[in-house]
Amino acid sequence: MAGEGMAFFSFAWWEIFLGGISTLAVFSFLYRENPFYRFFEHLYIGIATGWGIIAAVRNFLWPRVFKPLLGADLMVFPDGSLSQPYNQAYLLFLLPMSFGLLYYAILSKRHSWLAQLVIGFELGYAGGLAFKGTFIELLPQLFDSFRPLYVPGSAAESLANIVFVLTLTSSMVYFFFTFKRTPGGIVSRCSGVGRWMMMGCFGAFFGSTIMARMALLVERLDFLIHQWAALFY
């Protein structure tokens, strides 16, 4: 067990101890809303946000942008010469950086229109990338939806393919809203089948969501029992 044999009040001891207290604080919500829970909820949000900022600065902004831009990655020899000449192309970094900083104009009533330029640029490139990505992602799935209804020598696969095609077509019919449906008609019946198929799918999603949430509970209890409680015996 992780807590066993750990030096009292070492960094690792405090790490597990505070982790246990935070977990119990969050669990206290199950009894009722309380200030203890509220405090740790805000603490977690703050830590997660701060962590994201520091991670971006440490792993990207400093080593890949500011360090080369400021020439901090160059070694200065005792005679004052540099290990290699400063690459002035890095100054071009200032252009996208200045453009990006316009986002903060959103804080000013008078200059907020400048932020719209950045937002527009962002929407443009994200839209372009998403357009390309969607095709790359969905085309193989589209091809996969063309399945033989009869697979020689495999009744199970044939049945699976029939159920697949029935589910696909009936679910698609459910979303045809461009023509009138007569009650009891083929389109209406097919749409009803599609509705039931989707209900089954939603059931699977709901069940798997419960499973995911339960897994979180089990992991936390495992931590409390095998690591946190072990600190005290």
Binding site: E137, P140, Q141, F143, D144, T209, A212, A215
Partner: peptide
């Protein structure tokens, strides 16, 4: 994947992505 996205992941497994 986490349990929440299992049904969705099957689509990608079936299409061999």
């Amino acid at each position: 994947c986490t349990s929440v996205t299992i049904p969705e992941a099957f689509i990608y497994f079936s299409s061999k992505q």
